[in-house]
Design a protein around this nucleic acid. Sequence first.
DNA 1: AAGTCGCACAACCGCAATCTA
DNA 2: ATAGATTGCGGTTGTGCGACT
Length: 266
Amino acid sequence: MVRAPFYDKNGLKKGAWSVEEDNKLRSYIQRFGHWNWQELPKFAGLSRSGKSCRLRWLNYLQPDVKRGNYTEEEELMIIKLHEELGNKWSMIAASLPGRSDNDIKNHWHAHLKKRTKKNPTTSKITLSSEAYLNDADTARKTKTDSSVSCSPSYQVQESSQLPLETSSSKFSYLSFDNAPLSGINWTAKDSLATLETLEQSFSDFWTEPFILDNTYIQNNYPESLADGGFSASQSCYHEGVDSIYEAMQEFENYQKINKKDPYLVN
DNA sequence: AAGTCGCACAACCGCAATCTA
DNA sequence: ATAGATTGCGGTTGTGCGACT
């Protein structure tokens, strides 16, 4: 279904994402956010372009992202919004919590476009119009609705309360309860006990399953991070933490090159 | 059973918009 | 003001898979 993985002439990996890559990207963003998509793959240990990482995150890995099984309400909403907005998929996606613009776009081309050709007067749409579905779609729904379906009770949200950060360039940051590094601004003076926990945390870094709190903190991240501040202990990690240690050092170099204080802490 | 076709969707690409120095 | 870097968006492509012949 997806392109076979391969490396382009620049050494960047393309094509289907592996589970390992997904885990790396997910873990990295959950811990550090996406402070810079261009640089992120380097620190996350991925041979991908920033663009590719961004797309993968937004369309597939992001918490709360819904996949497949469009409800009738969602489909009708897409049709209606498309009639109003045209191919403004990101704007349409903003009104459908959990749906990415790419997903909606695909769904439109796969299903809804045909439907609207048959039924061009979408202004007559009502949210209970079962008859609006043609036979093929009804059959498809019967087939797919056996699995998880999302709530039919969503409402179109005002633009001031967009559901997900699908289109923001702002730094995002995630919080989670079980990670001692969650604040990032910890320093070398932190206790040994904390370091022990850290080692465990780091050793799980790449392989840790998706167990973290999905809470998305928007516009509430530490200011030092927003400014590029990045404080990390320089003390000793061993073995399983080498990669993250190297990544952090690389990050510091990056900050130095960019004339920013890597130890900037609020 | 084998070949063909169409669907579904992940992922890529190019360009525009925005940001930053 | 401007140029380069980065991000976001929309169009398009590639391919696995099921249905059909």
